[in-house]
Protein backbone atom coordinates (compact mmCIF):
# COMPACT_ATOMS: atom_id res chain seq x y z
CA UNK A 1 0.00 0.00 0.00
CA UNK A 2 1.20 3.51 -0.77
CA UNK A 3 -1.24 5.73 1.03
CA UNK A 4 -3.13 8.01 -1.28
CA UNK A 5 -1.08 7.54 -4.44
CA UNK A 6 -3.05 6.33 -7.47
CA UNK A 7 -2.11 3.08 -9.22
CA UNK A 8 -2.41 3.70 -12.98
CA UNK A 9 -2.09 0.71 -15.28
CA UNK A 10 0.77 0.65 -17.80
CA UNK A 11 0.47 0.40 -21.58
CA UNK A 12 1.76 -3.13 -22.19
CA UNK A 13 3.67 -3.79 -25.43
CA UNK A 14 4.09 -7.38 -26.64
CA UNK A 15 7.77 -7.37 -25.75
CA UNK A 16 7.25 -5.88 -22.28
CA UNK A 17 4.38 -8.20 -21.30
CA UNK A 18 6.69 -10.56 -19.30
CA UNK A 19 7.94 -7.58 -17.31
CA UNK A 20 4.47 -6.43 -16.30
CA UNK A 21 3.22 -9.96 -15.63
CA UNK A 22 6.13 -10.40 -13.22
CA UNK A 23 5.24 -7.23 -11.35
CA UNK A 24 1.86 -8.79 -10.57
CA UNK A 25 3.80 -11.56 -8.79
CA UNK A 26 5.89 -9.02 -6.89
CA UNK A 27 8.99 -9.44 -9.03
CA UNK A 28 11.05 -6.77 -10.79
CA UNK A 29 12.64 -8.02 -14.01
CA UNK A 30 15.50 -6.41 -15.90
CA UNK A 31 16.63 -6.85 -19.48
CA UNK A 32 20.14 -8.28 -19.71
CA UNK A 33 22.21 -8.56 -22.89
CA UNK A 34 23.46 -12.09 -23.49
CA UNK A 35 26.31 -10.78 -25.62
CA UNK A 36 27.84 -7.92 -23.66
CA UNK A 37 26.19 -8.45 -20.26
CA UNK A 38 24.72 -4.97 -20.04
CA UNK A 39 21.75 -4.64 -17.68
CA UNK A 40 19.27 -2.45 -19.55
CA UNK A 41 16.64 -0.02 -18.35
CA UNK A 42 13.93 0.61 -19.45
CA UNK A 43 13.31 -2.95 -20.73
CA UNK A 44 13.65 -3.43 -24.48
CA UNK A 45 14.39 -6.36 -26.77
CA UNK A 46 17.65 -4.99 -28.13
CA UNK A 47 20.80 -3.94 -26.36
CA UNK A 48 21.45 -0.19 -26.60
CA UNK A 49 24.99 -0.80 -25.34
CA UNK A 50 26.16 -3.10 -28.14
CA UNK A 51 23.24 -3.05 -30.58
CA UNK A 52 22.65 -6.82 -30.52
CA UNK A 53 19.20 -8.38 -30.13
CA UNK A 54 19.91 -11.28 -27.73
CA UNK A 55 18.35 -9.95 -24.55
CA UNK A 56 16.88 -12.04 -21.74
CA UNK A 57 15.09 -11.38 -18.45
CA UNK A 58 16.81 -11.50 -15.08
CA UNK A 59 15.17 -10.90 -11.72
CA UNK A 60 16.35 -7.86 -9.81
CA UNK A 61 17.01 -7.99 -6.08
CA UNK A 62 14.59 -5.12 -5.57
CA UNK A 63 17.17 -3.30 -3.47
CA UNK A 64 18.75 0.03 -4.28
CA UNK A 65 19.40 3.55 -3.11
CA UNK A 66 18.01 7.00 -3.90
CA UNK A 67 19.98 8.69 -6.73
CA UNK A 68 17.84 11.83 -6.69
CA UNK A 69 14.37 12.85 -5.56
CA UNK A 70 11.88 15.68 -5.48
CA UNK A 71 8.98 16.32 -3.16
CA UNK A 72 6.10 17.31 -5.43
CA UNK A 73 3.94 20.04 -3.88
CA UNK A 74 1.98 21.28 -6.92
CA UNK A 75 0.83 18.98 -9.63
CA UNK A 76 -1.43 18.71 -12.63
CA UNK A 77 -1.51 14.93 -13.09
CA UNK A 78 -4.89 13.23 -12.70
CA UNK A 79 -4.93 11.09 -9.57
CA UNK A 80 -1.75 12.64 -8.21
CA UNK A 81 -3.13 16.17 -7.95
CA UNK A 82 -4.79 15.37 -4.62
CA UNK A 83 -1.89 13.24 -3.33
CA UNK A 84 0.63 16.03 -2.71
CA UNK A 85 3.10 16.12 -1.15
CA UNK A 86 4.63 12.92 -2.53
CA UNK A 87 8.08 11.86 -3.67
CA UNK A 88 9.23 11.19 -7.24
CA UNK A 89 12.71 9.69 -7.34
CA UNK A 90 15.34 7.92 -9.35
CA UNK A 91 16.38 4.79 -7.49
CA UNK A 92 19.70 3.23 -8.46
CA UNK A 93 19.18 -0.52 -8.35
CA UNK A 94 21.92 -2.84 -7.06
CA UNK A 95 22.19 -4.12 -10.62
CA UNK A 96 23.05 -0.62 -11.91
CA UNK A 97 20.05 0.95 -13.64
CA UNK A 98 18.43 4.11 -12.30
CA UNK A 99 14.65 3.77 -12.43
CA UNK A 100 11.99 6.42 -12.08
CA UNK A 101 9.62 5.68 -9.21
CA UNK A 102 7.99 6.93 -6.01
CA UNK A 103 9.38 6.67 -2.49
CA UNK A 104 6.55 5.65 -0.15
CA UNK A 105 6.17 4.47 3.43
CA UNK A 106 7.90 7.46 5.03
CA UNK A 107 7.54 11.21 5.53
CA UNK A 108 8.44 12.85 2.19
CA UNK A 109 10.73 15.25 4.01
CA UNK A 110 12.71 12.29 5.43
CA UNK A 111 13.93 11.14 2.00
CA UNK A 112 17.63 11.73 1.29
CA UNK A 113 19.99 10.97 -1.58
CA UNK A 114 21.77 7.70 -0.88
CA UNK A 115 18.98 6.35 1.35
CA UNK A 116 18.67 2.53 1.02
CA UNK A 117 15.29 1.41 -0.31
CA UNK A 118 13.52 -1.78 -1.39
CA UNK A 119 10.80 -2.45 -3.93
CA UNK A 120 7.11 -2.71 -3.14
CA UNK A 121 4.32 -3.46 -5.60
CA UNK A 122 0.87 -1.88 -5.90
CA UNK A 123 -1.71 -3.92 -7.86
CA UNK A 124 -3.18 -2.03 -10.81
CA UNK A 125 -6.12 -4.43 -11.07
CA UNK A 126 -5.15 -5.13 -14.70
CA UNK A 127 -2.73 -8.04 -14.31
CA UNK A 128 0.19 -5.79 -13.44
CA UNK A 129 1.58 -3.89 -10.49
CA UNK A 130 3.30 -0.54 -10.12
CA UNK A 131 6.76 -0.79 -8.55
CA UNK A 132 7.52 1.73 -5.87
CA UNK A 133 10.19 1.83 -3.18
CA UNK A 134 10.13 2.19 0.60
CA UNK A 135 12.95 2.73 3.09
CA UNK A 136 14.85 -0.56 3.55
Amino acid sequence: MSGALPVPAPAVFPETAPFWEATARGKLLLSRCEDCGAVIWYPRPLCPACGRPRVSWVEASGRGSVYSFTVVHRNAVDGYREAVPYVVAYVELEEGPRVLTNIVGCDPEAVTIGMPVSATFDDTGHGSALFRFRPA
Partner: peptide, 16 residues
Protein backbone atom coordinates in the same frame (compact mmCIF):
# COMPACT_ATOMS: atom_id res chain seq x y z
CA UNK B 1 0.98 3.58 -28.67
CA UNK B 2 2.80 5.78 -26.15
CA UNK B 3 6.51 6.32 -26.68
CA UNK B 4 8.52 3.41 -25.25
CA UNK B 5 10.08 5.55 -22.52
CA UNK B 6 6.75 7.07 -21.46
CA UNK B 7 5.55 3.67 -20.27
CA UNK B 8 8.36 3.54 -17.71
CA UNK B 9 8.31 7.20 -16.71
CA UNK B 10 4.70 8.28 -16.94
CA UNK B 11 3.02 6.42 -14.08
CA UNK B 12 4.64 7.92 -10.99
CA UNK B 13 3.29 11.45 -10.96
CA UNK B 14 5.89 13.37 -12.96
CA UNK B 15 4.11 16.70 -13.24
CA UNK B 16 4.99 18.41 -16.49
Amino acid sequence: EPSPDAVFEGLWGMSG
